[in-house]
Amino acid sequence: MQQFANPARFLKIANAALPYIWSITAILFAIGLYGALVTTPPDYQQGETVRIMYVHVPAAWLGLFIYCLMGFFSAVAFIYRHPLADAAAKTAAPLGAVFCFLALVTGSFWGKPMWGTWWAWGDARLTSMFILLLFYLGYMAVWSSIDEPTRAAAIARIVALVGVVNVFVVKFSVNWWNTLHQPASVIKMGGPSIDKSMLWALLTMAVAYTMLFLALHLVSMRSEIAARKLRQARLIEIGNR
């Protein structure tokens, strides 16, 4: 852990790793998209609509994963008080929010032909995803409304940690609420009974999305470190005047 905690060393490792990560991302996207759009068969029930799965599921996975990651970085920052962990949590949030948003929109594009409605409150996953997006927006709002960076970091950590605990409670509540109000018209989507011919493409897309996030996250962290240096330089300049 301590090895990565030094910003200079972090930048060195990130800069060395980034070209490889970008190439792996590009290759995986090429294979995954070819699989998703060309080689995988249409579903016998859903037809071509099933292809939305290949962009919906990875986005949803990242939406959840990034939130947990944000909680992890916030916990590290809370315990070790290291600014780099704060930067990691801060830069992860907008990326997670975008993937969360994508999961919602593609989910609704999937829902319209399948359920006949753009939005089904009867689906617990859609509802919890929506609330997760709100948690992302709240976290980002904290960073943007507190000017002083160390103070913003300290507050944001707490908001993230409280949020992580609550996301699980929200998920549980929404699931429970759903069983309470199960409308007969909503078609329950099948469980993970995905055929092998589709699974490999889905997994490839999921890994491709994750690698893309990793690359974007490293670049955003690099920008964040640069922004901090610039801010410090500006403060010194003002002080010298």
Binding site: G47, T49, I52, V55, A59, L102, T106, F109, P113
Partner: peptide, 15 residues
């Protein structure tokens, strides 16, 4: 030419 193909295109384009 399949049914609902526009939804697939829309989902991929917005992504």
């Amino acid at each position: 030419s399949a049914a609902h193909v526009s939804y697939v295109i829309a989902a991929y384009s917005i992504s």
